[in-house]
Design a binder for these strands. Sequence first.
DNA 1: ACTATGTTGAACTCATCAGTTCAAATTCAT
DNA 2: ATGAATTTGAACTGATGAGTTCAACATAGT
Lengths: 214, 214
Amino acid sequence: MTPSAPAPTRGRIDKRRAILDAAITVFARDGYAQASVDAIAAEARVAKPTIYNHLGGKENLFRTAMVEAAEESRRKVLATLEGFPTDPAGPEALRTDLNAIAWQLVDCMRSAAGWAMSRLLYAEAARFPDVYDAVQAEGGRQVNDALAGRLARLANAGHLEIPDPLRAARHFMALISADIPGLSALGTRAVADKVLRESIADGVDTFLRAFAKA
Amino acid sequence: MTPSAPAPTRGRIDKRRAILDAAITVFARDGYAQASVDAIAAEARVAKPTIYNHLGGKENLFRTAMVEAAEESRRKVLATLEGFPTDPAGPEALRTDLNAIAWQLVDCMRSAAGWAMSRLLYAEAARFPDVYDAVQAEGGRQVNDALAGRLARLANAGHLEIPDPLRAARHFMALISADIPGLSALGTRAVADKVLRESIADGVDTFLRAFAKA
DNA sequence: ACTATGTTGAACTCATCAGTTCAAATTCAT
DNA sequence: ATGAATTTGAACTGATGAGTTCAACATAGT
């Protein structure tokens, strides 16, 4: 709300980026309807007409900000999944690796922007079905495919027994994030890393009970 | 929006109930901010001042409607859990019973009001932390306790091997509802019963892989 | 320096909506 | 029937906010 700080930057710089970042911040904080374009302009240290020049109206601003944020988040997750060990030394190494994957995945949802995405998606899915499709049906599927691929390779190397990798990937995600909404009160409270790690370890444990090689 | 129908009922009847039901309907459809008190009045076939007489302002209307709806939903779930078999005939009967429990649980979230709760809770958790606490931290915990009790009794009767019933209950919930947000696009699309049943059966299957008696 | 382009602030329009007021109408209990 | 309590419609106030306009201004490329 308060411009407050270091002299309003003029001229043509990375206004567009600043606007989109500010939009995510303000939409996440206030929700779509309660977020005012003026507040976003202030947060971005930009004049209101600049927003309309770059991004049309409030609706399109919302769409663009959400989709770009989702793309970035998805890129991060996929990159993380790429570089993971396929053939751990033994059962304990496997458990450690799965915990590490799980931590990376959870860490993405846990960030402020991550919760912003979740909350806004939930809240506005009915009013912006196209945004939901772009973010979840598209990005969510890609992440699940990639995760299924990693799990399948672990199974192939003889560490897991997985009849249906896609299903196992969905259940892995569900198990490691089972406690998060409750623990963080839907993202409104901070969660201690230690607590989160225990919750994730629990999820991995159940997953291994179900899918570890007999 | 449209009054349309059978002559506006006057006098003192169940106005309060009608208002709260209409509030849930409209809040669920439009979201808190976009829902107008006039729209709720129209939906309830009631004059606007009547709402203010019964329930004060918009905020209190929201709080009351959410909390009462949550209480009713919780009562239904707990009642369902009460009447469930504790000692199935064998492994296949156990699986059938778990599928039945799971269906009941999912069916509550799946109703229009159920999704309304979820969506509104998510969207407004930051602005109405007290509502979140009343609904989730309170009701969610009770349901999880009850479910943990059922699972513990099944374990006690020798059908399951469960180290930590509370944890198992959380993971059971997570597994049987893993696919629902994706399948229903966060409640904005209808899901065929058959698809839902398969998704639930998958969750129960993974649960049994993890916790069935060896 | 000169110019095209992008940016700014500020004021403005128009719509929506929460909450209020009040006199007329309706219902219920007796 | 009568009177107390409640409901109703309709008009009103005040606030908030989306989107626009425009003259002044800053910046980049030439």
